[in-house]
Amino acid sequence: MLLTRRARRSRPWPRIAVLAFVTALVLLPFLWMISLAFTKEGQAMSGISLIPEQPTLENFSVAVQAANLRQAFANSTIVTTVAVATNCVVPVIAGYAFAHLPFRGSKVLFYILVSTAAIPVSVTLIPLFLMAKNFPFAGGNDVLGQGGSGLLDSVGGLMLPYLVATMNIFLSRQYFAGMDRDFAEAARIDGASELRIFTRVYLPMARPLIALVAVFSFTGVWDDFLWPLVVSTSAKSTTVQLAITTFASTGNVKYGALMAATILVSVPVLLVFLFNQRGFIAGLSEGGIKG
């Protein structure tokens, strides 16, 4: 009796000590990044002290100018805003229809659309690049998409593959399928139109879904690297992720300024995450992980 009682009363301290140690280990790189970003260039390489002797903002101003961050932030903001907006509408209404307004073949169509989420990026990368290059009437192209550079090196080209993420169709369908159909029946008997039923009955209940879709789209687009790398050919269409890598590859790397740039680029996603933590983690276990 005594033994089982002792076994059950687990002491939390060893557990907490282990977890605290792991947390420190996981956060260490970030702490050092912050420390380095606030350390005067040249002092950075001396020893492993975590707190800079004379904290300075110099690295940040160097980073903003040298890494072309102003342009990068402007482009990334436009691309991400547009992608978040389209993703909050197009896949959401499709998911609603798949859940509540079935038509002949809707199930098959749903599975076809969602299965495209499993296709590796590299399979569609080259075709999408060629499609962007040969986009009709863009960048000096004619009707057949010949003659110019199309959407390459433009903000339009940057946003091309982000406008509808199939994962969001899946998430939306799952979410709406969990809602009662009786609301719609009742509204129909009252003579409400289908559009009205969606906008007045179901959409207000779907706020958490919209938040989740917005957060996923935001981080997915903001953090993406491969597509901008391929489609952007000059500083004019650079993005935040691209800007820090070009900055890093310019000869003698100044790590202080590089870390400052990395911090600036990461702050938006970090804020979005911290403010939506619960939804983010819930969505992660429901949908999929990225990156």
Binding site: W32, W222, L258, M259, T262, V269, G291
Partner: peptide, 11 residues
């Protein structure tokens, strides 16, 4: 996980 792969690779 939240910070981009590009950014953590820089670190």
């Amino acid at each position: 996980h939240v910070i981009s792969l590009t950014a953590v690779s820089m670190i």
